[in-house]
Amino acid sequence: MEHQPARWSGHAGCRSVSTSTPTSVSYREALTQAMREELQRDANVFLMGEDIGLFEGSFKVTRGLLTEFGPTRIVDTPISEAGFVGLGIGAAMSGLRPVIELMTVNFSIVAMDQIVNNAAKVRYMFGGQVSVPMVIRMPGGAGHQLGAQHSHSLEAWFTHIPGLKVVCPSTPYDAKALLKTAIRDDDPVIFLESEGLYAKKGPVGGAEDLIPFGQGIIRREGTHCTIVAVSRMVWIALAAADILANEGISCEVIDPRTTRPLDLGMIATSVRRTNHCVVVDEGWPECGLAANVAAHVYEACFDWLDAPIGRVNAADVPMPYAHDLEQAALPRADDVAQAVRATLARRER
């Protein structure tokens, strides 16, 4: 697959959006639209999860769908994450297209055996006799004082696993288009939503506007430093770019949109031009997403880099409850700006 060096892939980027336009919908509603359209398009698609039907979802992403599609296709489950994720895998092996909602990414840990040992592996270990056309959606991230057990960013865990595809949308347009791609994909897709983005508004595409996996997007063009980020961290990166613009520093912000496959081509092309790179990652630093992207960039761009790659991660602690501590543990725009300054300063040493 050839990646497009062009930036906007034919649709508006997240910065040029007016939230007051009538076509503007929330990230949450964008996801709902994607599921509604795919449920209408394909009778094999069904939704399953905790409180997604009558209660309309913990974050109301499935609002209205039970009324429209009925309990056969919008299935409320017991609190049995391993059980119903495994059920989805079995249903997918027989050709259905389950879209499983885990109430949050935190509960995926309970289902990890099913995801890693079954969803990701059955196709390979059975010699290609079956596919698992399943999506597991789940919101993650921190910032709402939910404490240590409800604040995970596990992009790195899932990205580690061959057999999975991992999607991390940052805008309503991408949320809708990528979820539709995920539902139509023949392999298991981990679809990581961000709790902090559900209310974010922007334009969305139509029923056949899809985004292929592995195709990143340049959210902001710049010349001095490339900042790589996904999901909510894209917005943090853009805020940092605004701060730095006032200092005469021009940042290019790249949103790979999927972390497996990763659009290294787009990232490397940018870094070879800017010669500097900072990666922003809401997860922990050790063996994390930023570490992985940095390793790829070192391999692809070593001779072009003028300074070590900067990483901005969550603090290496379980997420604290106290508001100020939590904020201090998360990557902030100031942290990203400082990382860019430090990276650029290394050149002058």
């Binding site: 495994g86 079995g90 092996m93 099913q114 079954n118 006799q129």
Partner: peptide, 26 residues
Amino acid sequence: MDREHAFYGGYGIVGGSIPLAVGLGF
């Protein structure tokens, strides 16, 4: 696994295949 004979597989994690079978029933 022998899908042609509706044998949906042997699994290495104790208990791991049970929800898959429930999914086939679903």
